[in-house]
Nucleic acid binder design. Sequence first.
DNA 1: ATCCAGGTGCAAA
DNA 2: TTTGCACATGGA
Length: 276
Amino acid sequence: MIAYDGKYFNVKDTLECGQIFRFCNYRDGYLVFSTDKACFAYNRGDTAYIECEPCDEEYFRRFFDLDRDYSLIYDRCKSSGYAFVAAAARAGKGIRILNQDERETLISFLISQNNRIPRIKSIIERTCEKYGEVKSFDGVEYNAFPLVDAMPSESDDDYVGLGYGYRAQFVRLAATSLKDGTLKLDSLKNLDTPTLKRRLTEIKGVGPKVADCTALFAYHRTDSFPVDTWIEKVYREDFNGVETNRKKITAFLEKKFGEDSGYVQQYVFHYKRNLI
DNA sequence: ATCCAGGTGCAAA
DNA sequence: TTTGCACATGGA
């Protein structure tokens, strides 16, 4: 079991702020799934706890970004000059940016485009149920995210049947190149952020937003600020922004917040969504 | 019913 | 280089 100071680690907010789709409520806490692993995470009093197989502790330490000092990030957000960012940081003080699996993140955010979060979750869940290995954690059965070789790569119909809609082709193509080795996500991790994003964008179905999310949530590139409909709203309503071009909005935000972009984005995204 | 969702590819300007 | 539109699906 891992015990960690809860001051900057709120499990609920970290999971529900939109960066991860595979988790569920469990005994006053959450079961969290990543690749083929699972853990039980919760807050009690001033402490956050992570329970998992001992051999997975190292994985989940990195997954929850436990080696990073979030007090510095939080303080910079509070003094950023934007009241909205300060309020969002205060409300989401315990949010941490996860270090997720590259492939699972890419596939998940391919599904996310022009889609709603509950629906994204159910599509991913159905995919795991159909193609992921059956595993067990604390007596609870769950399905791993499918292995590369278990992902269908012959026909779009396999994905259409799971509700992928027009995104079926994108995921099928990605699955194909992951399977045949044309696409090596692991080999991208040493690239600088602009190059990483450019390489990700070469994947069909991956535009600026999906590339930014993958760069942030899988490669921990906190200098990227994914701009979606919610961030556009924030930019317009809370930053008094006038640009309508997403590229320009992204450029503005990334220049403004630099290495803190990803953290600001999650604070703000979560805060804005929960205001309504 | 029409609209829209953590957008992107593609054609046209 | 930027803009407009189609795209599957399903919930409000």
